[in-house]
Every structure is written in structure tokens, then in C-alpha cells.
Design a protein around this nucleic acid. Structure first.
Lengths: 339, 339
DNA sequence: AAACACCAGCTAACCGTTTTGCTAGCATTC
DNA sequence: GAATGCTAGCAAAACGGTTAGCTGGTGTTT
């Protein structure tokens, strides 16, 4: 309805004065200020972000690109990010790359035309971790979240995947398990690779090695984990314990157990990194690591806003969070043969 | 980096021609088109959405305002909406009102300055269901999702809450339950009110009435449901079955049962409308209604895009979806006294 | 050959802000 | 009272696209 010119006319001032009042960017006498505010009210004026972006080169938009919106881990990230973004005075533009590099490319191009002021990116592809440039050729401030790529120069927020896997594996070994299998994520992702490495490392530290056919990887999806688990558990010598790389996969495994008529933890112990929030009333509760998503998100935004305001100058910062083990009822001591 | 003028200079054409090529909005000879495309490539040009919005009055942004991002039901809505919005060529700006009217007001103001082309709104407050106007005083196309308010004139997408509650209640009564309690949502929301009404209606149809102290309502949250359930189930004559109004609340109730040492369904039957996706491997599986979130979301976008393109003319359309009952293991036939 | 229609491509105005000078009025100083 | 400094407020030029309207060259019709 109303533009800044309408307001200026009604208040009998120039548009510059209205702008000064709206942005509090210059001294305006109380009298004029009152007139301007009254006119703004009467006309129900709200400044156009489009015009403002064009002039200022700032859109007040932050893009969040997650790899899989159906995954509750990322859903929590979205929840935390919306709150943090709003708290910093930005709005959140949400994208889902669905783990597909071509989607990610499309999305990053779109982000550029929207001239978003910053990006929180859960990367899918190596190339897209190259700095994104805006229409002035400036690098768009970016924080990589959850996963990283060798040699990237962006800020990153991650958890210590190796430690997470090590903690869980040690717990299983402490219960006496030696025939431990794993279902992990894609090995080209640090979340998949690191978690497998941590598990292997922990086992080797105790002179153990998982059987080759007890080690599987696949996409971080419920249905994928379900299929793999069915396969893994119906072979001749199944593992007595299974380390599952994330929360959704763990649910897939639990469903496979149910369908196979296996009881957890009586027939097999299950432990995972990451979990689904809010399911504490259902049995069995998973033994798993928990990841401080909210802290991670807030830190991501702190880094991002800092870089938006200070420019690309500073070195890349890499913040690593520590997971913590939470014990449920999904693991039991290994049964001796014949027991 | 590059503006349309840079491209025009390099390709030795006018900006109008570049625009025509980019938007495919007028005939351009193959020769010029090639030159323009080459220049675009060489300069890595991408049009500025800000400038475009300013001129066209279209931002290619659709706002999604959910009432509680922590609720998996809305998380699924976000997931489906992102995909649908992208498919129609828009980008999604996400907001969480957290069930607070003042947040909602702030968000709607922000949406106006962003000049979003359309809004999908899970309304929290009655007043905000009044049509939102953009900077030209035009009503911003809006679809109300999940909840409605009497007398609103927007398009709406809802499920039949009364039917959902009726189906679940009838199922419980078919198992012989007569002492049925309920934990429902806030009664000022159609999702809370309707579900309670449906339950009462179903019971009265069979000459039953719940005890006054077996009927509770509260916010649609896990912790709220947990507290209410503890209270409800520790009183002198607890119900033998509980109808819980949504998925997160049902999880809260299950957690309360676990803490009280009650077994479901042996000690009490639990059934709900709505559920948490992906937890089919955990026990007990809830008996509940399922709601076609994806279909609902796609329909919401169909309505929204239609209204964006055709203007405010047409009458408000109200699409109601039907929930369907899915039986799990959380309900058992009522035990006869002394059994 | 003159008159005309057609159309590819250009020029320039405009969208709604912000912001850089600039102006004019007042107070202060000598 | 002239010169100077100060500052509240204004006019106007961007920002980067889109598009109405114009131009001039070609092909067709008479």
C-alpha cells in the first residue's frame, strides 16, 4: 500500500527523513519524528525488503541447506536454526538437498540469486564446499555443519564421530561382546567414515576385528538400515551386537528385529550414535551417544554472523563437539555359548 | 560480480536483450542468444532476485509459519512443503510461532516486508487469520493449515478431527472399554476442541460419558502430556483406556506409564490421533489415526499457487482430509473386574 | 517505386529504498 | 556586523533488474 514517498508526503518531510526515522540512522527532531511515526501508523507502512536489499546489498536472509529433511536429526537442526536465525534478526530460507549433488548445485545457485547473507550447509558434494560467491564476487559466508571435506576453507561445526563410535564400541566390548557388527553411513561422508573408523579403532585396541560380512554401510535411511539388518542378521553366524551409525538407522534395525522375531537385547544388543528425541517411553530405550544439536547450531550462527559482519578475512575456524554416551536397555552382556 | 549491464556490454547487446534471453520473454535471434549466453557464462552472471522483486512485485518466496517446529507432525509438514515449494519454483522461508500469538504477529509483519508471494499458516491466534495485506494493500494469498477459525475467509486445509476421535473412541469401546479418559489439546484450537468433541460424541452415541476428572486438556507437548498422565493415572479410579489427542502427547503418556511401572496394553490401553513416523520397530506400536500430511501439503500448495496466479477473486475453498485408523498393540480388551 | 506492415533490438523510465552531498538557517566568535 | 562553524533536513543519484514504447531495416503489397 504505502511507500516511503507516501509517508514522506503525508508527514510533509523528505524520504530521507523517513528513512532516518525508520532506521534510526541520523538525528531527527522530536517534532518531525512524531509526524513521521504518525504517518507510518496511519498508512500502515512497512519498508520493502526488496528495495532495501537492492540498495544495501544485504538481504537479511540466511540459507539453511540440509541433506535430508526427513531425518529427525536435521529436523532438530532446522528447529534450532530457525530460533537462532530469528534471534539475530534474520529470516531462514530452508532447502533440502536430499543427499543429491545436483540438488545441492541447484540450491546454491538459487541462494546466490536470493543474495542470502550467509549459508549453513550440510554438504553432500565435495565441489559445493568451494566458497560460494555472491553477485559482487564476494564469498558468501558459509558454515559447514555436521560433515566436512578435506581441504575446505570454510568454518565448520562437527561432532567427534570417531570418539562417538569408540565410546559405543567400548561399551559393547565391556559387556563382553567380541562379535560386533556395524551398519554405518556412506563412507564418502565423514559421518559415515569416521564412525566406522572409530569402531574399528576401538576394537583393534583390544585386539579384535569385525568379520568382513558384519560390516556394512549404506545411506542414512530407515528403510536402507532395515534391509541391511535383515540381511546381516539372517546369515550363518550373525553378530551378537550391532553398532548402528545413526538414529533413523537404529529405528530401521529395530523394525527388522521385530519382523525377524528377534528380541532386543535378549537376542542381540543394539547401540547407536545419535538418536530420535522424545521416544523415551517406548521400549527398549536405545543405548546411544547424544549430540548437542542446539549448542552446535547456536555456535554455527555465532560463527556465521561474525563472518558476515567482519568479512572473509579471518582464518577458517573448526569447532568440534563431543558426544556423550547414554545407556538404555538395548544392550545386554554377551551370552556364553550354550547358555 | 556481474550485473545485467556487464553482460550486455560483453555481448554487445542491450540489457533488454539480455533480460529477454534470461527470461525467455521475447524472441531473440539465435546469434545474439548465443553471444548473450556465452557472456553470462564467462561472467558467471546470476540475476538479482532483489532487483527483480522490486520491479515485478513478486519475490518468489513462500512463507511457512508452523505453530511448533519441535513437533514431528509439523516437521513432516516442513519436509513436504519444502519439496512442494521448490517444485513450483519458489523458495521456502520458515518461521516458528511456538504457539505464541505475539510471535505470530511479529512473523506476519516480517512476511509483509519480505513481500512473500504466499503464506501457509498454522494459526495460533484468531486475529492473525485476518487477511494479510502486502505493500500494495493487496491481500497476501494465505492457506490456513491444520486448524481453522470460525468466520475466516482464507482457503483452509484440515483433517476431520471429529471423525478421527470418533474412530479411535469407537475402537476402544469395541474392545469393551467404558471408563475411557482423554488427554486432548488446547480447547481454543479446532484440533483440540474437535478431537474432544468427537470422543464425547462417540461415547454418547453409546450412552456413555467420561468421568469429569478423566478429561484433561493441555498444550500439544510431550512434557505436558507426561505430567497430565501421571496425575490422571494415579487417582483413585483411573480409566482403563486413554485417548490421547496427538503423537507427541502419546509419547509423553508412554513415558509416564514407564515411570509409573504400568504396562501398556496390559494395565491400560492407549490410542491416539496422529503419530510419530518411523518408530515401527519399538514396542508397543500405537493404535492411532494417520493423517495424510504429504497429500495435505501438496493440496495446500496447489491452492496457494492457484490463488497467487488468479488473484483474490475466488471464494475460499476448504479442503478436509480423512484420517484412517491404524491398529498397533497399545490397546487390549478391557479386563473384567477381578480377572 | 511508394506505401505499408512487421519485428528484432534498443533506449529509457521505473520499482522503493539508502545515502551522499548540499543548502539554509542559526549560534558563535572576533 | 561580517565571517565562521554547525547541523537539521532535503534533493537527487544510485542499486539491478523489467518493460513500454520507439526505431530502423526488411519484405510484401499495390
Amino acid at each position: 500500500m504505502a511507500t516511503i514517498r507516501d509517508v514522506a508526503n503525508r508527514a510533509q518531510v523528505s524520504t530521507a527523513t523517513v528513512s532516518a526515522v525508520v532506521n534510526d540512522s541520523a538525528y531527527v527532531s522530536p517534532e518531525l519524528r512524531t509526524r513521521v511515526l504518525a504517518a507510518i501508523n496511519e498508512l500502515n507502512y512497512a519498508p520493502s525488503q526488496a528495495a532495501r536489499s537492492l540498495k544495501r546489498g544485504r538481504s537479511q536472509l540466511i540459507a539453511l541447506v540440509v541433506a535430508d529433511l526427513a531425518n529427525p536429526f536435521f529436523a532438530r537442526l532446522v528447529w534450532a536454526a530457525e530460533a537462532a536465525v530469528a534471534a539475530w534478526g534474520y529470516s531462514l530460507v530452508l532447502f533440502n538437498s536430499d543427499e543429491k549433488p545436483e540438488n545441492e548445485r541447484r540450491i546454491l545457485a538459487r541462494i546466490r540469486t536470493l543474495s542470502c547473507d550467509g549459508i549453513i550447509l550440510v554438504p553432500v558434494d565435495v565441489v559445493s564446499t568451494q566458497p560460494q560467491r555472491d553477485s559482487e564476487g564476494e564469498v558468501i559466508p558459509t558454515v559447514l555443519f555436521g560433515r566436512t571435506v578435506e581441504g575446505q576453507k570454510s568454518d565448520t561445526i562437527t561432532i567427534d564421530n570417531v570418539s562417538a563410535a569408540r565410546q559405543v564400541t567400548n561399551y559393547l566390548m565391556d559387556l563382553g561382546h567380541t562379535r560386533i557388527g556395524t551398519i554405518t553411513g556412506p563412507l564418502h561422508l565423514t559421518t559415515g567414515r569416521g564412525r566406522l573408523d572409530g569402531m574399528l579403532e576401538a576394537m583393534r585396541a583390544r585386539g579384535l576385528e569385525p568379520a568382513a560380512n558384519h560390516v556394512r554401510s549404506g545411506e542414512f535411511r530407515e528403510d536402507i538400515a532395515y534391509s541391511i539388518a535383515r540381511e546381516l542378521l539372517t546369515q550363518a553366524e550373525p553378530p551378537t551386537a550391532l553398532y548402528v551409525a545413526n538414529g533413523v538407522m537404529a529405528l530401521g534395525v529395530m523394525r527388522a528385529l521385530a519382523d525377524l522375531g528377534l528380541k532386543c537385547p535378549d537376542d542381540i544388543s543394539i547401540a547407536s550414535t545419535d538418536t530420535i528425541p522424545g521416544i523415551g517411553g517406548l521400549r527398549p530405550r536405545l543405548t546411544r551417544t547424544e549430540h548437542p544439536v542446539i549448542d552446535m547450531t547456536n555456535e554455527a550462527l555465532r560463527l556465521l554472523v561474525d563472518r558476515i559482519n567482519r568479512g572473509a578475512g579471518a582464518d577458517a575456524r573448526n569447532v568440534v563437539f563431543q558426544p556423550s554416551l547414554v545407556v538404555g536397555e538395548s544392550c545386554a552382556p554377551v551370552r556364553k555359548i550354550g547358555e
